[in-house]
């Protein structure tokens, strides 16, 4: 469904060049549900804009829905749906009017466009607000309207750029549910971007992690976690001496990464649930009985942290600030 080769974009603004997307190879098969996960400024939107014919790449090629984005953009546009990062519905228009126009743009008859608009209004629960001017809708309502606009022509391939930004948790869950249903009912191929870890984790079958314009990992969430992050055994001790002893013991476990700060010790290791009881016994035998323990499965944030040394969770809107923060972080490692 998508075949990108060496797709790259360089921006030049105010004499500064930004390699927004480094040469990228990406294949997405029909029916896949793929998340592009990365912090703000990673190049997710730029990638989507190139794949949806909105932006000419600096170099490289891409076939999307069977057609070359550069040579046959209209053939691509006919076959894809795209929910951009902004508000697709014109703020001065009424939601239903926009849905009907959208249907007409894809060649539906006026009657068919009307029927389709009514269908989407019902399925995205916009009944009460579809006949109001868009600027009077809440952020969540607008976002659902944007999604409806992307679905009008029931595309075989749907792109969603940060579909849940600005939504409250309840609306985010609803959106996830909707995308799932779309997949189940129509076999639609879906590519969405997000900087929400849980969303990528829950919704995507495949996660492509991007950072600074490069793909740094690409696999199922389960395999990414298995490959790039072990389970986490979080321990707390009564005093720092005990913690130091425990950290030293834990360092002896094969494949374990240990971090200590004051009286807390974090052990990252595969099969953490099996190893924890043994470790606790060993600590007690050396006079360092643990006061608290918690074993948790890794998250995609752990994967990101492992790959980049930065936490995606802490990454704010300002990338530079987050980068600085990551460099300032001091880690004490006992091994």
């Amino acid at each position: 469904m998508i075949e990108a080769r060496g797709l790259a974009k360089r921006f030049t603004a105010a004499k500064q060049t930004v390699e927004a997307v480094h040469p990228l190879n990406l294949d997405v098969a029909t029916g896949e549900l793929v998340a592009l996960l990365g912090p703000n400024g990673a190049g997710k939107s730029t990638t989507i804009r190139m794949l949806t014919t909105l932006l000419a790449p600096t170099s490289g090629t891409a076939y999307v829905a069977g057609h070359d984005v550069l040579r046959r953009p209209r053939d691509v546009r006919l076959r894809i749906g795209c929910v951009g990062q902004g508000n697709g519905a014109g703020l001065g228009h009424r939601g239903r009017d926009e849905l009907i126009s959208q249907g007409r743009a894809y060649g539906l008859t006026t009657a068919a466009a009307r029927a389709r608009a009514a269908e989407l209004i019902a399925s995205l629960e916009l009944q009460g607000v579809a006949d109001r001017v868009v600027s009077s809708l809440s952020g969540g309502q607008r976002r659902r309207l944007d999604v409806a606009l992307g679905l009008v022509h029931a595309p075989q391939l749907l792109f969603l750029d940060e579909p849940s930004t600005g939504l409250d948790p309840q609306n985010r869950a609803r959106l996830v549910e909707h995308v799932r249903r779309l997949r189940a009912d129509h076999g639609t191929t879906v590519v969405f971007t997000t900087h929400y870890l849980d969303e990528a984790d829950r919704l995507a079958e495949r996660v492509v992690i991007v950072d600074h314009g490069r793909v740094i990992a690409d696999d199922t969430p389960a395999r990414l976690k298995a490959a790039h992050a072990g389970d986490r055994i979080a321990l707390a001790f009564d005093d720092e001496r005990a913690a130091r002893t425990a950290a030293a013991r834990a360092g002896g476990v094969e494949g374990a990464a240990v971090e200590r700060s004051a009286n807390r010790v974090d052990v990252r290791v595969a099969g953490g649930a099996r190893i924890a009881p043994r470790l606790l016994g060993e600590f007690a035998a050396h006079g360092a009985a643990a006061a608290e323990v918690e074993v948790s499965r890794p998250t995609l944030d752990d994967v990101f942290l492992n790959l980049t040394g930065r936490s995606l969770r802490e990454e704010s809107g300002d990338r530079a600030a987050a980068d600085d923060g990551a460099e300032d972080e001091e880690k004490e490692s006992a091994a």
Binding site: L54, G84, Y106
Partner: peptide, 21 residues
């Protein structure tokens, strides 16, 4: 200015990705 506004909000982009000429 209407178009300028829609270029900022994203409505123009949405239309640009449809098959409209």
């Amino acid at each position: 200015s209407n178009l300028l506004f829609e270029m900022q909000t994203g409505a123009h982009e949405r239309l640009m990705v449809t098959p409209l000429r």
